[in-house]
Amino acid sequence: MNTPLLTVHELHKYFPLQGGFFTSSKEKCLAVQDVSLSLHKGETLGIVGESGCGKTTLARMIAHIEKPTAGEIRYNGQDIFKFDKKQLKAYRRKAQFIFQDPYASLNPRLTAGTIIAEPFIIHRRNLAQDIDTDLENIMKMVGLSKDQERRYPHEFSGGQRQRIGIARAIALRPEIIIADEPVSALDVSVQAQILNLMKDLQDEFNLTYIFISHDMGVIRFISDRIAVMYRGRIVEMASNQQLFENPQHPYTRILLSAVPRL
């Protein structure tokens, strides 16, 4: 097997609790404890767990939004928390984030076109004409039309907003996409459209996904491998087939049995 694109090694994240203004608190919230995993190019790692299990904190650390208390994350062998400014900028370009709430994560004062083109402007300032054709291509790829570029987020439906979020994330041809509950706020029929779109884009650009969800059905559909998180720890890690056909950890079994069957 070739070397992994990203490895997470014994990652911990503690948040202080009830710290007063002058007194430092001894109590801590153990959000992520001793998490290790590796990610290969082109695969989808599903992370499943209930609210408060640490899955979002883990994702935010991988995206370099949050710093760990201990442990390291290596991208192509290099520790992302030891990157200098230039390396970090390059990493931010390669690892993109898709947020859960398409209503809260888009700037309401910017047009769809500006939101999608913003990454280009930030990462290479020249080439104004280029941006226009790139913008058109990307909007087409996610199922939006060019004439929607002048509209504001509130003029779009939830599904279309999530398409804008995805367009923005793939704009710079990233390697890794970290998607935190990207379809949880969407209706079932729209959810299906977005899930299919994410698979199509993965095929086209050989994207690597970290896909966070609390929905076992969604996780089953999209993931090659799955990590089950419970109280900050990964309690089970298995291939899709193994996890659903032969769950080992009692918590995984509870999760599976709680899903209402059609």
């Binding site: 029929s189 959810q191 299906a192 929905d215 089953r220 559909f221 090659d224 059609l262």
Partner: peptide, 20 residues
């Protein structure tokens, strides 16, 4: 609606798409 729900039963196949 019924077809567009991802199920936990059945096989996993990476190339599978949901009917929309």
């Amino acid at each position: 609606l019924l077809h567009s729900i991802p199920r936990i039963e059945g096989d996993y196949c990476r190339d599978k798409r949901l009917p929309i």
